[in-house]
Design a protein around this nucleic acid. Structure first.
Lengths: 199, 199, 199, 199
DNA sequence: CATGAATGAGTCTTCATTCAT
DNA sequence: CATGAATGAAGACTCATTCAT
């Protein structure tokens, strides 16, 4: 039924968030109060289930980015988006692992990340043009930084759940247009190109 | 013999570096060209082997930090240390996982991390006092940032092995004393204290 | 299904009985005609499986002991109980090993043994008071003797499956109240106390 | 060298005695202060080493039995022999396991047991003819009883190292010629015949 | 549709035994 | 002769996935 799918998705969401991608199907099924077989009725494989959950998170983030597209203050908008991004990562162990490891991403997830990256690129460009951030920073940088900020705080998140805000602030200071030297090793503008394997 | 142990450690080093802590003993043995049992001749358990490899890396880092202790330019010294730290992380998947997840650390590894953190604290203090970095940044921040910088670059490391240098530069700019606002959510000075308490 | 569990328990029962506690899960699975994983579906660990089988035997023995509690002839009742006990041991290698080695006993098994020992104590006391057995024999002695009688016959059990009856008879003669000298080295009345302390 | 063999045998003796036949070759080698390979230089297999140690024990027992052959009091002689036998068993875990489980016996051990059994048969016959013990008891019974008596006390040997004397006394009372009823299930006079497998 | 039993490949680890040095 | 490194066959246990009911 459709209700079971809902329970399943809820359970998977919390299980992946708390325990990461390695959480077992059995654990998820148990949390949902269904049998393991039911999981595979709704999702062809564990990877599919994971992808579905990750897509939810990505879609929410895409929506947020979309809503900030025409914000009055592009610098502030970018900061809000980054806040939302890091917050989402800090709240979900599996999300961190998936966005940080391309090998865990399937086609749909990759497409959603690309979509998100495109919006980030737009917001970043606006902020850059307004002089809110330095002009050698790209959208790809911003997307990558989200995972980095979360990771910085990760080891202390148990004791300091808000620590990521500290490192977001620090990173944002690094993005400020006050810095004279150019950043080295610029990446290609497109995230997919930057990810392009083995090269 | 000693040669086999060398092969084994080499194999383990590269296997852990490429695939992370979950790489199987079988894979390591195969890379080394030995039987599985041979691995357990040299290291009592997989954890012991992992710890040995991690301690190599940590010891090298500690040595580097120690050598920079009395450097003429404390700001530059800190940057060099961070470079060495991120480079080590970027080159080793397992190292990232171990330093980021206290549950993977055995007593020796934990002690080495603590020792390293102590040296970072010293270098950070000097840089702070010299005005090379802003005065609301602690050694704990620096240690945590290493993992964050690596993580930022991680998704593109396959295609751009030096990408971490870009994000190290960006982070270092964020540490510059030009920033007026204080960082929120300060952590306790001691890393162990910051890590304390699972919740 | 339930049939498979039956097959599994049957297989485990006979495998443990014939080969002792060291029989492999693979052997049991093969006898049951299932895969190894199936064993772990039904029992969380080998110890759990062993405990389940052992508890069956102990429960049957406890039931027997309980049924003999108010028997008209306490001497005969004790003999019947000992017969049941030795017979159970003679038929099951693993049972012998488990009751003889406290380290193989989990909490439930230990509790069942204690319960059985309590009943034996009662029956022994009655027999003693009736003058059916000598008055320096305790329930602890009787419990211990069961394993001893089995062990006496063990080496010839292959060729003489009933040999234990011979040594039960001999032992029972030794328990008769006709003997003038007291038994040396009396043990504490309680079995757990007698077992206490590894040294 | 011959000295190494001595160290090895000493180590094996104590290791087998304390831990039983399952003690590892590594443990024995370590106790002896030699390398594992050395064990196999002196003994072709673990079974051979075990057999050598067991033969020592059996030879000592055979000697004891031989010395009691012409004792003035045949009943007392038998009791002394049984005391020596049970004491040897109680002091050696592996010895118990080997004599109790024909499958652990190699040809030499079996021969020594047979030799011992022959002597016991002689002592038993004398005691029987003197009326020191009941006349339906055979040497085979006596040999088998040794293991049984040890086993009776085994579970409490940790806390009560002399407990076996209690059960030896009890058993000896059972052997007394005061008992009217014949023992059931007589075994063939020869131990090897009684052991004869699968019959 | 849902169940949960069954599968089987894969993991770490132990240990008797062999053999090059 | 002694060493101890190497082997490889087991063993217990886990888990994604399949499928009969």
């Amino acid at each position: 039924m459709v209700r079971n799918r809902g329970l399943l998705v809820d359970a998977a969401r919390s299980a992946f968030a708390e325990s990461g991608v390695e959480v077992s199907i059995g654990e998820i099924a148990q949390r949902a109060g269904v049998a393991k077989g039911t999981v595979f009725r709704h999702f062809a494989s564990k990877d599919d289930l994971l992808a579905a959950i990750m897509l939810e998170l990505l879609d929410r983030l895409i929506e947020t980015a979309d809503g900030l597209r025409d914000a009055a203050d592009p610098g502030e908008a970018l900061r809000e988006l980054m806040t939302a991004g890091v917050e989402a990562l800090a709240a979900d162990q599996a999300f961190c692992e998936v966005v940080g490891k391309p090998s865990l991403q399937n086609a749909e997830v990759r497409a959603a990340i690309e979509r998100f990256a495109g919006l980030v690129e737009v917001l970043t460009a606006r902020a850059r043009e307004e002089g809110a951030i330095r002009d050698d920073v790209t959208g790809t940088d911003i997307v990558l930084l989200l995972g980095g900020i979360q990771q910085t705080a990760a080891p202390v998140l148990g004791a300091h759940p808000d620590a990521w805000r500290r490192y977001l602030a620090l990173t944002f200071d690094g993005l400020a247009p006050v810095h004279a030297t150019k950043l080295p090793h610029p990446l290609p503008g497109n995230l997919q190109t930057a990810l392009a394997a083995e090269g």
